[in-house]
Write a protein that binds this DNA or RNA. Structure first.
Length: 214
DNA sequence: CACCAGGGTGGTT
DNA sequence: AACCACCATGGT
């Protein structure tokens, strides 16, 4: 089965996910940091709180009182680290002249700049590239790795190969957008009775059958 | 009560 | 290069 077929099945099962829920590219960048190792529910609370304080723009956030930002992002966890990181991210965006200026850079160069931010690793950088800057990149997370390994019956794959395979099969931003969102949604429904299943039961490669899907 | 969530960092081997 | 503890809140 091709990845394109898998994507079609995922859409048929869960429907369009409409990621990324945000009102601006900068808000998406903030959300990508705030959602780390927590639920979107908690990240959204932090974003709402920042919005209530008028801190959803880089100029205000870059100059905000750190203790104020800490209080706002607290629901998302790791609040000291995340507060420092979103403030630093805002300062960076301000320095380079805004998100629009960043968006003129080639993907490769932009990725390097994002990765150089404190608290921005590969997954977060790629999420920003895909959802805030609308670049055709594959976001690799734990769900995708497990799903892909299970799908091919292998126990190891390097990110380069996985990335290349996904982008080749799903070249458009719209496809990569839906795919990542759906893999996350699908992964959250991973088989609880059989941990190794990781929610692959909708697919023909899976021998567990749909009954084992939680 | 334990375990997890749309990770990243810094230190150790 | 491959682990590991740690960060911290809220839901189940």
């Amino acid at each position: 089965m091709t990845l394109r077929t898998s994507l079609e099945r995922l859409v048929a099962e869960y429907g369009p996910q409409h990621w990324w829920p945000a009102n601006s590219p900068f808000e998406i960048m903030l959300g990508a940091v705030l959602v780390q190792q927590t639920t979107w529910r908690q990240a959204a609370r932090a974003i709402d709180a920042l919005g209530n304080a008028g801190l959803l723009n880089w100029s205000a956030l870059a100059n905000a009182d750190p203790s104020e930002v800490e209080a706002r992002v607290r629901p998302a966890g790791f609040y000291r680290a995340k507060a420092k990181r979103v403030i630093a991210l805002a300062a960076f965006v301000a320095e380079v002249g805004g998100v629009a200026a960043l968006n003129r850079l080639p993907t490769r160069e932009l990725r390097g700049l994002l990765l150089a931010r404190e608290g921005v690793g590969e997954e977060t950088a790629d999420a920003m590239l895909l959802y805030a800057f609308e670049r055709p990149v594959c976001v690799i997370d734990a769900y995708l790795r497990r799903w892909y390994l299970r799908r091919h019956g292998i126990d190891r794959i390097d990110d380069r190969t996985l990335r290349a395979g996904v982008v080749k099969a799903l070249p458009s931003v719209a496809q990569l957008n839906e795919f990542h969102a759906l893999i996350v949604e699908h992964g959250k429904r991973r088989c609880k009775t059989r941990p190794l299943c990781d929610g692959c039961c909708l697919f023909s490669e899976c021998s567990h059958g749909q009954a084992s899907v939680a």
